[in-house]
Structures are given as C-alpha cells and as structure tokens.
Write a protein that binds this DNA or RNA. Structure first.
Lengths: 207, 207
DNA sequence: AAGCCGTTTGACCAATCGGTCGGGAACAGG
DNA sequence: CCTGTTCCCGACCGATTGGTCAAACGGCTT
C-alpha cells in the first residue's frame, strides 16, 4: 500500500520557500549576535515576515537555531570525511586544508555561527561534539597515525594536527574584521592564505 | 590656581575592591554570552551586589564592557611587543608563541571575550584594531621581513605568519570545549599543544 | 457558490531587559 | 555626640523580549 501515514506531511512549496527564507535570515542574525543576542524581531524583519509567522513555521527561537546547527554540522564535516586513506598522504591533507579554507571563504556566517556556539560552551551541540565529531576525528586520526608510522608524513600528534587545520582555516572567517583591519585595504586574505597554508603544511608534513 | 577640579577623585579602597569584583564577574558573564547576551542581573549576582549598586560604580553596561576590553588589549599585545629584533629569530618567535599559548591557558575568559567581540564585528574595538594593533603588527612584520631577507628564517608572508600564531594559540582557549570533547578525558590540551606548536614553528621557520 | 485548509497578522501577554530614584545604612571627621 | 559623605538597595519605570490567540485571508476543490 502506498498510503502515507498521518505523521509525514509533504511540505508545501510555500513552506519550503518560507522555511528557507527564515533560516537564511536567522543565519545572518545568529552568526552576528549569538543565540541570546539575536531577537525574533530581527530575524522576522530580515526575512520580510511577521513574528507570529516565524512561529508558524518553527515552534520556537531555539528550534530555528538547532535546525541551523544540525544542517551546518554535515557540511562542516564533509571535507574531513573525504580524507581518503588510499590517497597520497600529503595531497590528501592539503586537499582537506583547501576545502576547509573554501568553506571559510564561501560560508563565513556558518563558521561564525559555529564559533559562537562553541565559544559559549556548545550548550546545544555537546552531543554532536562528543559523538559524531569525536568518532570521525578518531577514525581519521588513526589514518594519520598509520601514515606517520609508514614514514609517509612527519610524526606528529594526529589530533593536534587536525586542530591546527581547524584553527588556521576558521580563523580567516571568524576573525575576518581583525584580519582586514590589520592588513589594510588592497588585500585578498583568502587568496594569500591559500598559498601560505599550502607552504605551511607541506613543510610541516615533510617526514 | 592649583585647585583640584571636581573631576579627579582618588578612588576609595572600597571603590577599588568593588570595581574589581564587578569586572571579575562581568568578565565571566560577557565571555560566556557576549555583550548582548549578558545581563546586568547575572553580573550583579556573580559579584554579590545589587544591580543598582553596579550602576553606582559604572555608568552603564557598556562602560563595564569597554573597561574590560581596553584593559585586555594591553595584556594581549604585550607578548608581541616583546619580540626583540636583536634576539635570535627562531627563538624570539617561539618565545612569542609560548607566551601567547600561556595567555590562552591562564586567561581563557579574556581570550573568549576578545573572540566574542571580534566575531560580532568588533563594534567597540575597530579603532584599536585599525590603530594600535595594525601599527604594532606592521612594525613587527617589518622585523620578520628583515629576518627573512637575511636568510635567518624561511621566506613567508609576515602578516600571515603572525595570524597563524594567533589562530593556533587562541584556538585552544576559544574552542576549549570542542577540543576536550574530541580528545576525551585524560588529556592536557595545553601541555600537548606546547610541544606540537614548538615542532610546527621550528619546521615552518627553518630557512 | 460554498467550504476547506494552509497561511498571515494585529493585538496582546507575562517576563525580563537596562536603568532610575529616593531613602536608609555605614563610616568618616569633628 | 552630630554632620556630611560615601555606599547600598527595594521599588519602580518604559522598552523589549519570546511567545500566544483568535480572527481573517488566500487559493483550491467540489
């Protein structure tokens, strides 16, 4: 029987469009002010909808935030998932660095949303950090360890190597205003960073 | 006339103590929730004082925040100021890395306060970033360039080298919960980071 | 035309926000 | 003791917060 149960509603076109609009506006506001600093009125204005209408599509302010975070986590972890144990070690890691830097460049608001959440103790993400994230990192760290034991990359603490990639790439999104203030006009931080990080990790990983 | 105007009062012992208590409590709250997310009631409770009493010592919530930020900037820039053009290049830079990592370890709340502010566009710190910070960084970047031209360290973009130090050291304070969640129990992130960052920058700076 | 269901909103609510005010408590110096 | 200044707080204020609700709107089928 092709009968759909009463639980699963197919989502109208209007619902899909408005949910998207709301999430887009919410990302803008949450990433700038953090969860507690953001207001539903700001999000509503950004989305061009009335406040009660927001709460017609999402049950609460927190639900919007949680939806953003969970959607974000997948995209955020994808580059690390792509790390291939069968590939060339140095090039695999450099690919990871490159993809992570591209995320910072193309989705800085998502990076800042994540940073805001972790900065405040990750109250809505602890499970994901200790669960999916930790197991994924542990798995990939094991690959790095094997590469190091085979003498194909330098012998470095694998977890901290991964942390350094996170730190160096996300820094360009999270501290964007500081970087631009210090560099002054006439610079493309991300383009310069790409070459610098390439050099950095090639030197670091050389056995 | 040498008459003292009504503006300069010497600050009572009680004033000094209570101002300190308030700033300590405010640091705790601001660093966790950001400016907009923090409330005077939280700060007052943390300081063990009544809310009107806070506003007896500080004219507004923003004044407390500004006071914290300006005090912070000095301590934050001190390690970079200490970079000595007459010293051994690699050791000078490694000293800087070490001092910066110690700041993250010993004053993580200050680091998160700073991160929160920059993350939100540094609305109360733009002047400092484009003024004192930029000129200090430019000055020290010139030293790095000279060292590179003399072949005493690797030829790297000096600004991004400094950014990498900031990113790698502050990451351990700002993303503390993520790092501990991924590492699991039984780790001392800062001790492990010290060795890792020492290795990283020695490899990176080698000509 | 009628009815229906997804959509939208103005009016409203209790709670909380940053900040004020007037008066009392504590501590001087005389 | 009295007097003045510093210190402290309960009560309160207007504005804003996240969230509710009943009523109305819209397009679609019958």
């Amino acid at each position: 029987m092709e009968d759909e149960g009463p639980a699963e509603r197919p989502l109208t076109r209007i619902q899909q469009k408005n949910r998207q609009t709301i999430l887009e506006a919410a990302l803008e506001v949450f990433s700038q002010h953090g969860f507690r600093g953001a207001t539903l009125d700001q999000i509503a204005e950004g989305a061009g909808l009335s406040k009660p209408n927001l709460l017609y599509y999402f049950p609460s302010k927190e639900a919007i935030h949680v939806e953003l975070l969970s959607t974000l986590m997948d995209a955020w972890l994808a580059p690390l998932r792509a790390l291939d144990p069968a590939g060339d070690p140095v090039e695999e890691i450099l690919d990871y660095v490159r993809r992570k830097l591209e995320l910072s460049r193309d989705y800085p608001r998502e990076s800042r949303l994540f940073a805001n959440e972790v900065l405040q103790g990750a109250p809505r993400m602890m499970d994901a950090l200790e669960g999916d994230l930790k197991s994924l990192v542990d798995e990939k760290a094991a690959i790095l360890t094997r590469w190091a034991e085979a003498g194909r990359i330098a012998d470095l603490p694998p977890h901290h190597l991964i942390f350094s990639i996170w730190a160096l790439t996300q820094h360009y999104a999270d501290f964007d205003v500081q970087i631009r203030a210090v560099l002054g006009p006439g610079h493309d931080p991300y383009e310069e960073a790409e070459g610098f990080l390439d050099t950095l990790f090639r030197k670091l990983l050389a056995p």
